[in-house]
């Protein structure tokens, strides 16, 4: 949220947060970054999209001045992360670009204390903003809602998809990137194969989270996504892209990581509902499959840079 003050763009609510709490990174979700680590999840309020199905409308679609928020400096948040034993910090809950200076300042402070920082984003931002995120975030999960401009216009309230695709391609080169696609039954479920191909062409090691969207907010009357049908489509897409996950339903069998080479389950997770999952065990040996030795693209502390790229 910004205002022009004396000819300068200023953040309206700097260092003003809607939540700060500890969770496991799989819940956010990141499945290929620091598996099993504890994250300090922070968020602010507001969004630059107006998605008809928003799950976090209570904070993303609410004006910050109407919410009971926290005034917390980057130093305080980093200290809290350390007090609660968090390995990293993630900006989630709402769109990071509405509070970009606060997020960047937090990332800078976190870096001083060797805490990696990541974020969730819809990817809809200027090249300059994307450059800032790429420079300061160690890992990102970008929501690619569709490959259709019409979908973005009708369901997200923005005019163009191009900035999202441009930024995804930029982040994939520089950062650890995961992609999430919410599936709306009969609206974008036919795009599964096409999106898988798009991601593969950027980098086949990018994990893709397909999200079973519950009909909420302005789409309450829509159908619940058909799990069997989507699973069938994802099974086929698995021949295109090795790391596909399907979540937001309890007990999903699609949340573990299998070795693309030998098929062995190398990171076992359980879905407790909501968007991510929970780690049960990580069998990787220095990011390699214990069965066949294949390298699995997972961001870990002992690796400098991004493994598997």
């Amino acid at each position: 949220m910004y205002a022009v003050v004396d000819g300068e763009i200023r953040e309206r609510f700097p260092n003003t947060w809607s939540t700060y709490h500890a969770t496991h990174i799989e819940q956010i979700p990141f499945f290929h970054a620091y598996p099993g680590s504890r994250s300090l999840l922070v968020g602010t309020a507001g969004c630059n999209f107006s998605c008809s199905y928003c799950m976090n409308a209570y904070v993303a679609k609410e004006k910050p001045e109407n919410l009971d928020l926290f005034e917390l400096t980057p130093e305080k948040l980093v200290k809290t992360a350390k007090l609660s034993g968090c390995h990293n910090i993630v900006f989630g809950v709402n769109e990071v670009t509405v509070s970009l200076p606060s997020a960047i300042n937090l990332a800078k402070e976190a870096k001083l204390h060797n805490l990696p920082m990541g974020c969730l984003s819809n990817g809809y931002m200027t090249e300059e903003a994307a450059g800032l995120l790429a420079d300061h975030m160690s890992f990102l999960n970008i929501s690619l809602k569709s490959l259709s401009p019409e979908f973005y216009q009708k369901y997200a309230g923005v005019t163009d998809i191009k900035p999202v695709l441009r930024n995804i391609e930029k982040f994939a080169v520089k950062n650890h990137l995961e992609i999430t696609t919410p599936i709306v039954q009969s609206v974008n479920d036919h795009e599964i194969e096409e999106i898988a191909k798009y991601i593969r062409d950027i980098d086949p090691n990018i994990p893709w989270h397909v999200f079973r969207l519950l009909p909420e907010y302005k789409m309450k009357d829509y159908a619940y996504p058909d799990i069997e049908k989507i699973s069938e489509a994802l099974q086929k897409a698995g021949e295109i892209l090795p790391y596909i996950y399907f979540s937001n339903f309890v007990g999903s069998p699609w949340v573990s990581t299998n070795c693309p080479e030998c098929g062995k389950t190398v990171i076992n997770r359980i879905s407790l509902g909501t968007c991510g999952a929970k780690l049960l065990n990580n069998l990787l040996l220095e990011n390699r499959c214990p069965g066949c030795g294949e390298k699995i693209a997972v961001l870990e502390d002992y690796e400098k840079g991004i493994p598997g790229r």
């Binding site: 619940y224 058909d226 799990i227 069997e228 309890v250 007990g251 069998p253 049960l280």
Partner: peptide, 18 residues
């Protein structure tokens, strides 16, 4: 036994495994 509309799964309740 978890039911999420038109889809069910049975789990061992202690481990969570299917």
């Amino acid at each position: 036994i978890i039911d999420v509309r038109d889809w069910q799964v049975t789990v061992d309740f202690q481990t969570g495994n299917k």
